[in-house]
């Protein structure tokens, strides 16, 4: 169990050596003094290194809260979260330090509009002092070119389509060689056609760099298509209600969507999610 033993050992079943997240009995209560809102309740989840872990659950159940706790944007009330055996937050350390080992891609996108796409991508290593500007730009350029984004280098994020922006943002995250990518409904605002392109591009990226992906979504099809596992959360306060193994082999392409197995998994997820959504709805009725 020691931190040292867990590191640099055998690759996980997904072929990655780092990025294992363990969430143990985590509670998160907003505003403990006043009207306490319990957003996360005794949540335990074990994500092996290199897994694509999809998280679905009713609106407002506490998914973002959990992600923010891993990222270090806010504290947890109790429990602990570790990354590769090292404590991120837990007893005595309520809030994790945000760091480039766990990069977040935000729901509405957070490329700096005042920097060109290239400057955005190169930002991480430069501010960390890991690379000289020149090296960072070189690496950024080659990563962008690999992702087919070379021609947007000199544009500002405001000048490119939202789909391309998401891709740039993911490249910006990968630039830091993170152990974990935390994605909070990154493709929510995209049309379904763009979305499908995004999925393929994300998977392609994933096959090249086996990072752990913690991916929140409302789109069940997206969840099953991308994920190794789909974690279905209960209505607020959230905790895993059901964890679905998606036994469709990777690498996947769009043919997977039409397979019978995919349909079966969809039905199974749908039932579980629907049940929670009804609960959330009824809870909302009571409150309102």
């Amino acid at each position: 169990m020691s931190a040292v033993m867990n590191r640099n050992t055998q690759p996980s079943k997904y072929g990655a050596t780092r990025g294992a997240i363990q969430i143990k009995n985590v509670d998160k209560i907003y505003d403990p003094e006043g009207a306490a809102v319990k957003a996360v309740d005794n949540c335990t989840l074990d994500i092996p290194a290199g897994e694509i872990c999809m998280v679905v659950g009713p609106s407002g159940c506490g998914k973002t809260t959990l992600l923010n706790a891993i990222a270090g944007f806010h504290s947890i009330t109790s429990g602990e979260i570790t990354l590769d055996g090292e404590l991120l937050c837990g007893p005595g350390k309520p809030q994790a330090e945000p760091g480039s080992d766990r990069v977040v891609v935000f729901q509405n996108g957070a490329l700096f509009p005042w920097k060109t796409n290239l400057e955005n991508v190169a930002f991480g290593p430069i501010v960390q002092g890991k690379m000289s500007k020149k090296e960072a730009y070189e690496k950024a350029r080659s990563l962008m070119a690999d992702a087919g984004l070379g021609r947007s280098e000199r544009n500002y994020p405001g000048e490119i389509s939202s789909g391309v922006r998401r891709r740039v943002e993911i490249v910006r995250a990968l630039m830091n060689d993170p152990a974990v990518l935390l994605l909070d409904e990154p493709y929510r605002a995209l049309d379904s056609l763009t979305k499908s392109v995004m999925h393929e591009s994300l998977l392609e990226t994933y096959y090249k760099n086996k990072v752990t992906i913690f991916f929140i979504t409302h789109d069940l099809e997206e969840a099953i298509f991308l994920g190794h596992r789909v974690v279905i959360m209960t209505s607020r306060p959230c905790r895993p209600k059901k964890i679905l193994e998606v036994d469709i082999p990777h690498p996947r392409d769009y043919n997977a969507l039409t397979s019978t197995r995919f349909r079966e998994l969809m039905d199974e997820t749908m039932d579980a999610v629907h049940e929670e959504a009804v609960k959330a709805f009824e809870a909302g009725e009571k409150e309102g």
């Binding site: 990222a71 270090g72 944007f73 945000p98 760091g99 480039s100 766990r102 990069v103 977040v104 935000f106 509405n108 957070a110 490329l111 700096f112 920097k115 930002f123 991480g124 501010v127 960390q128 910006r172 830091n176």
Partner: peptide, 20 residues
């Protein structure tokens, strides 16, 4: 989210001030 993004890309407080 811009400040958050900057901090998870490794920017310290002063760099967040300067770049965000």
């Amino acid at each position: 989210s811009y400040s958050r993004a900057a901090s998870c890309l490794g920017a310290n407080k002063w760099q967040v001030f300067r770049h965000v």
